[in-house]
Amino acid sequence: MRHGKKFNHLGRTDSHRKAMLANMATSLIKHKRVTTTLAKAKALRTYVEPLITKSKDDTTHSRRTVFAYLKDKDAVSILFREISEKVATRPGGYTRIIKLENRLGDNAEMAFIELVDYNEIYGKKAEVEKKSTRRRGGSKKKATETVAAEATEVVKEEVDAPAAEETPATDAPATEDKKED
Rank of each mutant, 00 (worst) to 15 (best):
M1Y: 07
M1C: 09
M1T: 09
R2D: 11
G4L: 09
K6P: 04
F7P: 00
N8H: 15
L10D: 01
T13C: 05
D14Q: 14
D14S: 15
R17F: 07
K18R: 15
K18T: 13
L21F: 02
M24S: 09
A25Y: 04
L28C: 03
I29F: 02
H31F: 12
K32F: 07
R33L: 06
V34A: 06
T36A: 06
T37W: 00
A39K: 12
K40I: 02
K42W: 01
K42R: 14
K42V: 02
T46I: 10
V48M: 06
L51D: 05
I52R: 02
T53I: 04
T53Y: 09
K54P: 01
K56A: 04
K56N: 08
D57S: 15
T59Q: 03
T59Y: 02
H61M: 09
R63D: 02
R63K: 14
R64M: 12
V66W: 00
F67I: 00
A68D: 12
A68C: 03
K71F: 09
K73W: 07
K73V: 14
D74Q: 14
D74N: 13
D74G: 15
V76Q: 00
L79T: 01
L79Q: 01
F80C: 00
F80N: 01
K86W: 03
A88S: 11
A88H: 07
A88F: 07
T89R: 12
R90G: 01
R90A: 07
R90C: 06
P91T: 05
P91A: 08
G92C: 06
G93M: 01
Y94W: 02
T95E: 03
I97E: 01
I98K: 10
K99A: 08
L100H: 01
E101G: 06
E101P: 03
N102E: 09
N102G: 04
L104I: 12
N107H: 14
N107W: 06
N107V: 04
N107A: 11
A108E: 10
A108Y: 02
A111S: 12
I113W: 00
E114M: 14
E114A: 13
V116S: 10
D117A: 12
D117P: 03
Y122K: 15
G123Y: 00
A126Q: 12
E129F: 05
E129A: 07
K130E: 12
K131I: 12
S132D: 09
T133E: 13
T133L: 14
R136V: 10
S139W: 00
S139V: 04
K140G: 02
A143F: 12
T146A: 14
T146I: 13
V147Q: 11
A148P: 00
A148Q: 13
A151Y: 15
A151W: 08
V155F: 10
V159W: 10
V159A: 12
A161K: 15
A161G: 05
P162W: 06
A163L: 11
E166M: 10
T167F: 07
P168E: 10
P168Q: 05
D171K: 12
A172I: 11
A172H: 08
A174H: 11
T175Y: 11
D177I: 13
K178P: 06
K179A: 14
K179P: 03
K179Y: 10
D181S: 13
